[in-house]
Amino acid sequence: MERQLREHTELSCAGCGVRLQSESPEQAGYIPEAAIAKEPVICQRCFRIKHYNEASSVAINQDDFLRLLGGIGETDSLVVHIVDLYDFEGSLISGLQRFVGNNPVLLVVNKIDLLPKGMNMNRVRNWVQKQAKAQGLRTVDVVLCSAKRNMGFDHVIESLDRYRNGRDVYVVGATNVGKSTLINRLISDYSDMERELTTSRYPGTTLDAVHIPLEDGKAIIDTPGIVYTSRMTEVVPRSFLGTLMPDKPIKPLVYQLNEQQTLFIGSIVRFDFVEGERQSFTLYLSNALNVHRTKLDRADDLYDNHKGELLGTPTTAELETIPEWTRHSLKVRQGERQDIFISGLGWIQANGGRGALIDIYAPKGVKVMLRDSMI
């Protein structure tokens, strides 16, 4: 057994070909040490697909993921790109179009269950199409769904039937977008798991996707999730994710602010209304986060004395593990409704169209940007 433990790092998964490892369950190739002696030797991800019809998320870095994408362009396939509506710009794969070649792209927008109740979904869909086009992504269709709440999944299946035309289906997406939940639904609704799990290796990389057989001999290919460190979800401790990521419809928070006022969003983000006429701002973020208003000239002292306590989580100890704040100075255009988007946190809508100068303080590396309002 000791010899097996020493040598297993040189083994590859018999299911997907990835190098096996027992240190990181969330990374590709994980196998519990107790399973190393079993035959065939397969990673936990392949084991769960084969025996339980259930896929789990694994992640790879950006360079490896881009090499993986490069192989898709050489195939004749349907590409299903899953994004998180709540973190749209943070989860959209930049430059996807140039990697997939002429293959059609079906954009599946997950987590619509988090939107406030009563939303006009046609308007949201039109907004998604516009944003995707602005990012250079050409899509054959956009489907809104919630894999977790089983909303709109019949439309996902209908779109796969419409655009697949007997081809393989490659599923791509970032981490934490609900890809594994959606894959599990596809496995149960769309795949014949009586067949043996099959594999295929991309040229130029040792990281492999898992092929889930379909009845017509083709496959759904589940690719590892790409890690974007520009998302708040990737820089905060796991213990804080339950507070950061909403799990039920958001209840928007509206604040009427004068210039030189500040909002602290927990102890993780600071919003300064630096200059502009009195106007309202609507916060679309997890309702588990505490929001505290103060005057701009008191903000520094308030944060120094009350971060992790009065201002809310993350705790002081957790903040020590998070990158220090970077300031982002943004100018909201007069006469337009715009969102201040903070990847992984949510967004703040400037409602008045009166123009404003805003400073956002967020952990270094987290994407902060202005965009046309979603709502």
Score class of each variant (00 low, 15 high):
Ile60Tyr: 00
Ile31Leu: 12
Ile250Phe: 01
Glu259Met: 14
Cys16Asn: 03
Glu309Ile: 03
Thr206Pro: 02
Ala134His: 13
Ile212Thr: 02
Leu296Ser: 12
Asn184Ser: 15
Cys46Pro: 08
Arg45Ala: 04
Asp300Leu: 13
Ala14Tyr: 10
Ile212His: 00
Tyr163Ser: 08
Leu68Lys: 02
Asn120Leu: 05
Arg45Leu: 03
Leu115Arg: 03
Phe47Cys: 01
Asn122Lys: 12
Asn110His: 05
Ala134Leu: 11
His81Asp: 10
Gly17Tyr: 04
Val171Pro: 01
Asp372Tyr: 08
Gln4Phe: 15
Glu318Pro: 08
Gly276Glu: 02
Leu310His: 12
Ser200Val: 13
Tyr52Ser: 00
Asp339Thr: 08
Arg293Asp: 09
Asp272Glu: 11
Gln256Asn: 14
Val177Thr: 10
Glu275Arg: 15
Val140Ser: 06
Phe88Val: 02
Ile358Val: 13
Glu33Asp: 09
Leu244Lys: 00
Ser267Trp: 07
Asn258Ser: 15
Glu196Ala: 15
Tyr284Ser: 06
Arg354His: 12
Ala132Leu: 10
Asp359Thr: 09
Pro224Cys: 03
Ile112Asp: 02
Leu241Ser: 07
Leu311Asn: 06
Val80Phe: 04
Ser57Tyr: 07
Asn150Ala: 14
Phe240Val: 08
Ile36Val: 14
Leu214Phe: 09
Arg333Thr: 06
Leu289Glu: 05
Asn53Trp: 08
Leu357Gly: 09
Glu215Leu: 12
Arg67Asp: 12
Val177Tyr: 05
Thr326Met: 14
His292Phe: 13
Ile93Arg: 04
Met232Gln: 05
Ser200Met: 13
Ser77Glu: 09
Arg333Ile: 04
Leu244Tyr: 04
Ile226Cys: 03
Glu194His: 13
Lys130Ala: 14
Val227Trp: 03
Leu69Ala: 05
Val332Ser: 01
Ile348Tyr: 05
Ser91Asn: 11
Tyr86Val: 06
Pro249Ala: 08
Tyr52Gln: 02
